[in-house]
Design a protein around this nucleic acid. Structure first.
Lengths: 221, 221
DNA sequence: TTTAGCATTACGGATTTCCGTAAAAAACCA
DNA sequence: TGGTTTTTTACGGAAATCCGTAATGCTAAA
């Protein structure tokens, strides 16, 4: 079993639960980082001291306070860590259950497991730890189908960008201007209209307002 | 100190933190309910058995699963409980930090304390318990100013209703129809337009889409 | 009762969105 | 290469919005 684990989690009650779980399954050394930056520094230092962590369990979102953080989220942290230290296993433990985000974390950042906090969160976390220890990836049932594609048929970054700008108050004409200025294609007003129309149908939205409300609720933007 | 406390919280790790806190400060009997409906039933049963709880600590949002719940949220639970058993103290313990919701909970549902989950969540929860035990209300610092009015100058329920319907995909004309059908005044298209215009100015929104996006981010709808 | 002030409604024109069709351009493929 | 499909752009009319102004109605004060 792992012997040295870092838990990056800012809420102490959740950390308490994770901590007991880890000690229960025999992890000797469990450390907590309340800020994502602290986690990063601890990981570096541990490597420098030649006593590296074998596993990082991290939340995705951290409450803001006065301290300015270099890593704004667990996502950024995970990405950086995996790039620099691909050997360090990472389990993301979060309430977030958006498939899109899970997909990015697994496919692009190559984290080793994704566990949804929830009623059975700790139980699943324990499973995840075992799987990861055996070099397998693990996904909570709720997001298990995140990796099977064909889901929510292809909303790409271009779509997201339009929706974002729309929710920022730009008119379709202004979005067209903006795309032209930033060399994003296609960028004619007509294309923007067409794409929005496709999205409206896809999300069964009555109009652009409805559409933006829906995708905001889904967490796509 | 309280002797019998019910914690309505579906995540077992958070519950673990709260549980240790409660036993640490000397509460003898701590029970957990993972579903809001369970909490309601336990409270009723305890009263029926003449061993009522003195305090309910509840989250606001519960993860959904197959079991259909009568109370969709901690809000509904708190409201019902306080109406039927005003003597039972209630502390809401949630990540949610929208002033509007805190205001409703305190002013309309008369919960006794509102604590934001966060880095210092458990600490604040402990303070809240003491305050509530002394018949005082308690608010986390983050939401302390929720009760001072003059905030976000007068967005009333009528405004909220318009914004909600708008985000539901109704056109302004349809909202007018809807208001007429439900005897909400004013309900002419012109009045709706005017009110939306006021809101747009107030929130510095470029258009209706922008407006809805902004108020959704603020958690007003 | 009259009048002033405010809220509600009505109206009209400019702009934007919505939606279908079609031309132009680009990508694809024997 | 020429032909086909797909993508992008263009255009036009109907509907909805944005926005100012004006008419109507209601209430309270003089």
């Amino acid at each position: 079993m792992f012997t040295k684990v870092l838990v990056s989690e800012d809420m102490d009650d959740i950390h308490k639960g994770v901590y007991t779980l880890l000690t229960d399954i025999g992890v000797l050394e469990v450390q907590q980082a309340q800020y994502s930056d602290d986690a990063y520094l601890k990981i570096r230092k541990a490597i420098f001291d030649e006593a590296p962590y074998q596993l990082l369990i991290t939340d995705l979102s951290f409450k803001q306070d006065h301290r300015e953080q270099r890593f704004k989220s667990g996502e950024a942290l995970a990405k950086a860590i995996k790039q620099e230290y691909p050997n360090l296993k990472i389990i993301v433990y979060s309430v977030e259950n958006r498939l899109q985000r899970v997909r990015t974390l697994i496919n692009e950042y190559h984290v080793d497991a994704y566990v949804c906090k929830g009623r059975k969160g700790l139980l699943e976390l324990s499973k995840a730890i075992t799987s990861v220890y055996n070099n397998e990836t693990y996904l909570s049932p709720e997001v298990a189908n995140a990796l099977s594609p064909k889901n929510e048929l292809e909303i790409d970054n271009y779509d997201i960008e339009i929706l974002k700008q729309l929710s920022n108050g730009l008119s379709q004409e202004e979005i067209s201007q903006y795309f032209k200025a930033n060399n994003i294609f296609p960028n004619s007003l007509s294309s923007i209209e067409k794409r929005l129309n496709k999205l409206r149908i896809q999300f069964k939205a009555n109009n652009a307002i409805h559409l933006v409300a829906l995708v905001k609720d889904l967490g796509l933007i």
